[in-house]
Simulated assay, not measured.
Amino acid sequence: MSDQDPGGVPDQPWAQPPPQPRRRRQWPWVLLVVVLVLAGGVAAAVGVVAGELSREGTKPLRITYEVTGTAKDVTVTYPTWQDGELSTARVTLRALPWTGELKTKGFMEGGSFAVTLGKSGGEVARTVTVDDGTVRTASASGAHATAICSGF
């Protein structure tokens, strides 16, 4: 007799089925493509914003300051820009109305225009107009009162 099992297949414990070919993982490649697409989108957005900021930085702006009212002793404080440097101008007025104009290039945000009445009091109204259409107004009355516009 032979050493065969009843099915007629010889007993060979060393024989194994042939190995299946390994499938390559695709998720790392998909992840890489997604990261590259996102990085390209961010780079394009940064380029667009940088171009817009560059154009805004050289755009000429005209800011007009106006003060009207009945006060006889008024101090006006407003920002000025020269050669890219921010400074503050202060003017004491003995009669109203008063108008000041500033021409500058570049960004102008966060300015503050203050009108302070002296001890004699009175009434004042002040307006800031930026040529892009931004208008800020305020008024004050009484001794040592202040009217402030900011964020223009």
Rank of each mutant, 00 (worst) to 15 (best):
T77Y: 03
G40A: 15
A44L: 15
A43S: 15
E101Y: 02
G8I: 04
T92Y: 01
D131R: 04
G121P: 11
Y78N: 07
L31A: 13
V37C: 06
R24E: 15
P28H: 04
T146W: 02
G151H: 09
Q26M: 14
F152E: 09
G133W: 07
Q20K: 10
G51E: 08
Q20M: 09
S2K: 00
W98F: 06
D11M: 13
S150Q: 14
W27P: 01
G41T: 05
Y65I: 04
T116I: 05
A125L: 09
S141T: 06
V67M: 06
E52R: 12
R25D: 14
E52H: 09
G106W: 10
R55K: 09
V48T: 05
T68P: 02
P10F: 15
A43G: 14
S87W: 02
G84H: 11
T70C: 06
D83E: 09
D11R: 14
T137L: 05
E109Q: 13
T64S: 04
G142M: 01
K59E: 14
R126G: 13
V130N: 05
D83N: 12
P79R: 07
P18F: 03
A143Y: 07
F152K: 10
V30K: 00
R136W: 10
P17G: 11
T129Q: 03
R24L: 15
Y65E: 02
V49Y: 07
T68I: 08
E101V: 13
T75G: 04
P17R: 14
E109Y: 14
E109H: 13
V67G: 06
